[in-house]
Design a protein around this nucleic acid. Sequence first.
DNA 1: AGCACGCCGACT
DNA 2: GTCGGCGTGCTC
Length: 758
Amino acid sequence: MKIAKVYINQTNFSMDRPFDYLIDREMESLIAVGQRVMVPFGYGNKPLDGVVVDIIDFNAGESNGYKLKKVLGVVENYPVMSCEQLKACEWLQSNYHAFFMDNVNAYFPGTLNIKTKKDSDLKTRFYLDFKIKETIQYSLACEYRDLSLDQVLELTPKNAIKQAEILKYLYTGPKTREELKEVIINPNQAIKSLLTKGILLEAANKESYVHPKKLIKKPDLTPDQKNILSEFSNSVDRVSLLHGVTGSGKTEIYLNMMEEALEQGGTCLYLVPEISLTPQTINRITERFDQKAAVIHSRISDKDKVRQYLEIDKKEIKIIIGARSAVFSPFRDLGLIIIDEEHENTYKSQNRPRYDTIPLACKLAEFFNAKVVLGSATPSMVSYYKASIGAYRLLELPNRINCMEMPRTEIVDMREEIKDGNRSFLSKALYSRIKDRLDKGEQTILFLNKRGYYSFVFCRSCGYVIKCKKCDVAMTYHGKTNKMICHYCNHTRSVEDTCPECKSNKIKYSGSGTERVQALLEKYFPAARVLRMDTDTMKKKDSVQKTLELFADKKADILLGTQMVTKGFDFENVTLVGVLLADLTLNFPDYRSSERTFQLLTQVAGRAGRGTKRGEVVIQTYDPGNYVINHAKCHDYKGFYDKEISFRKTHEYPPFSRLFYVGFAGDDMKSVKKDCESYHRQIKVELEKRNQNILIKDVYPPSPSGIIRINNRYRYYILIKTSRIKEFNDIIRAVNFSDETKKIKSTMIVDVNPNAVF
DNA sequence: AGCACGCCGACT
DNA sequence: GTCGGCGTGCTC
Ligand SMILES: [Zn+2]
Ligand SMILES: [Zn+2]
């Protein structure tokens, strides 16, 4: 007899370990490591699914008479988890303190439900439920797609108003019935009639696959690009860091690297920070290769997710493009992972499992003997440090292609502006340059760092700030809907006319930073067409892409936005970039605020002058001597890096240490505090046990979170900043599974190198 | 997550 | 005395 070690599909501390089950002799040939099985669990012997992580021989003598239960059956008839994937799950478990089954589940599309049925031989069988509802999309029939909108509208009778509405809407692209219903009331009858006339086409949603008709030919490479590519092909290094200034042709290099990997039969994984913000990059990849590519993002239908999953699993797809969760694709022959804009913080998962994509990708590459390429114009401090000590191969592209010059940058001291009596958000320099571009018909991007620029609602009579009832934060006013919203729990409230505190009517409402700036821009430049791009205006599905298309088609003069406008878009007619207030992210209380600001400034500056004309950048600030701003002005990455890395070293911040954040939340403040203190005490005890008492200096005492209450739950945390990673990984694991910790009622999270600590 | 076991107060 | 409240702990 054999024993299967099974992780059961429950995610909590007490079940984050394998359980032993006997394998019936007749089932032995059916069960392998990596397979999903059903096992009886608990007093009720409830059938639960789990994953086999090991199979060992059963020795009756060793069992101590302990009664073992038997595996009930298999879910699939093949192992769903490869041994590389299982190793990755284990690695995440020990390095990120993520539950094993959270890691396993990250590999599965959410809705693979397991069903039971009795077979004719009366044996219970388990199978996957594939009954996932189809998403049907409606689009204009092919033969009418080249017509103008007016011509299309002539296809239906004049009195068919609803049909015309539908056609008008569908002219912008395929839509589902639900989307049509949002815009057009009761469209069913009209859709039916359009379908019978053959004007509309009904098709299952396939938008997650991109298989283009026309392929774009490979352009000639510059000598710089050729050098980099040959250095890369000849190197045996596992990880390479491609540091290329904005506009240096990094994407073309990625495409060539992918071509080589595909020729060798490897699967390519191309990761981007956010799918919706990178339509241009995705198009370039799919236009280049004459094969199916899977684009993995959160908005595709469950059915497509399952289909994609199975096709990647069967090696039918060799190109996978996606955001961070795509590292959990079921590839079996990984050849290359490209991580574009590797400095972006979206690569760190903020939810369970709380992994960091870059180390995970490197680990996967190790298991598969594949290569990883990290690319950025502004590499993260961590990555560049690793390259500088030789852990990564450094590939550098210091010049823009076609001898394009880097934009000219000017720093404007806003204090001088105030001295001169200019109290507006636009300096004279930026104002005159915007005016100049408007006259010349060139475009401008204006960047407003969002943080700190939320508009809260307060009473000018007594100073009372309206706060969320469930959270310890101020409500934000939303001009468009005339409502207040809490950004932490999404609670919305209508506005009040009088101050709840002093009953005066001097309550002040003003729109968000971008909203206000947009209104002012329209006042200063009445003729200018201003597009706004921020999280508020970009909530709808295709709005990002539409805004970008409008701007690319020169249907607007100014693109005003938050962090979103700094991403790698390529607009040839943009010759001016303005940073309205560089200080906003600089003063944020986080050890990475300098790094983040440098990245934002450099990236947004890189949007200028991508066509034939040289770009200009204006950075407005109250702190013109700041080294971050000045290094960004000179496009001096190395200078900034040297300064910043010495700061990290003296203060022992990453890459010279690792941060462990242990957070506690619950509805009773006192018990949350108590739980947090208990955890802290246990860390001390564990250190004493190991004769490492001095390391307590690395453990910050329990403290209330910056925002103590969110959604009526109080929050406390412990922070550990240490270079003794092995020790603290062991200690955290020991404490997590201790008897004392079992008494902790608060929800507890461990986040390794979190994006934000508060 | 469930479900049993057990320790305490209220109700026949 | 015993019924049931839920807090605590275990499940291969
Ligand atoms: Zn008041
Ligand atoms: Zn709230």
